[in-house]
């Protein structure tokens, strides 16, 4: 790691101020991606602004038709939450499958979304459920949030404060992990919501995306069979030593079917 300054503000305002005054500052949430990146000397921020001291960023509330998760809430907390398990079991299951137990004890939803790693889990749920991302400045709809590989709609200094998930009629998430890293190689989050069926595919392409053809098919009949014969364009898939784009495109179909089955219980 390169040397940096460390700050642990207690308020959002202080956090924003600290980042603004840094030459090249970065927010630190769970650190499960940022710290490995720094250890490999792949980034050299001048300052790290640790968000974990800001009480209002942490916690889970379920009210009315939504589950709201604070940005620094650990994956393990989401996975273990009885309320989340009851309201959106697929979301709890997704959180319970991120990384490994130790990563889940540190990693946060805000950090995961701000980073938008193509192989991350949470983008699948956010896009699949049509969640709303609350930031220190505004609210951003899931469909507008993920803009590309490691790219989001977040502006410089903007902090995710919480994520609001509408409770769907039913939802399912299944992933096919990369055999080595166990990050997502192909994931599918399928949800039947008040605003229709949503199918988010993560891990497979450079950025999580909605599979419109599958959504249309499932809107007609919410069953695994409805997805039969739907192809995914390999041209839009990632390609690496673990999975060719053709294989990923094939897995999108298989995993999406399994996600539908999971949603149906």
């Amino acid at each position: 790691m390169y040397a940096f300054n460390y700050h642990r503000p207690a308020s959002l305002a202080d956090a924003a101020k600290l980042l603004g005054s840094a030459t090249d500052g970065k927010f630190l949430a769970g650190g499960q991606t940022l710290l490995p990146t720094l250890k490999q000397r792949l980034a050299s921020p001048s300052d790290l602004v640790d968000l974990n001291g800001i009480a209002e960023l942490n916690g889970i509330t379920v009210s009315g038709g939504s589950v709201t998760i604070g940005a620094t809430t650990r994956h393990a907390a989401v996975a273990a939450s009885a309320e989340v398990k009851k309201a959106i079991p697929a979301l709890a299951a997704l959180a319970g499958g991120i990384g490994d137990p130790q990563v889940r004890n540190m990693g946060t939803i805000g950090g995961s979304l701000a980073n938008n790693d193509p192989a991350a889990d949470y983008p699948g749920a956010v896009l699949g459920l049509g969640a709303t991302i609350h930031t220190s400045k505004r609210k951003i709809a899931a469909d507008d949030f993920f803009t590309g590989m490691f790219e989001t709609a977040l502006e410089e200094g903007e902090i995710i404060t919480k994520v609001e998930f509408p409770i769907p009629k039913r939802a399912g998430y299944v992933k096919f992990p990369n055999p080595a890293s166990r990050y997502v190689m192909v994931g599918a989050f399928v949800a039947e919501t008040a605003n229709g069926v949503r199918v988010a595919i993560n891990g497979a392409g450079p950025c999580a995306f909605r599979h419109k053809e599958m959504e249309a098919a499932l809107a007609k009949s919410f069953s695994a069979d409805a997805l039969k014969g739907i192809k995914t364009d390999p041209g839009s898939m990632n390609n690496d030593i673990h999975a060719s784009s053709e294989y990923r495109a094939h897995l999108v179909g298989v995993i999406a079917k399994r996600a539908v089955q999971a949603a149906l219980g």
Binding site: Y6, L28, G31, Q32, L35, P36, K39, L48, P101, Q102, V103, N105, M106
Partner: peptide, 8 residues
């Protein structure tokens, strides 16, 4: 449990 190599 946490990985002490991934926490400052």
């Amino acid at each position: 449990s946490v990985k002490s190599c991934t926490i400052l």
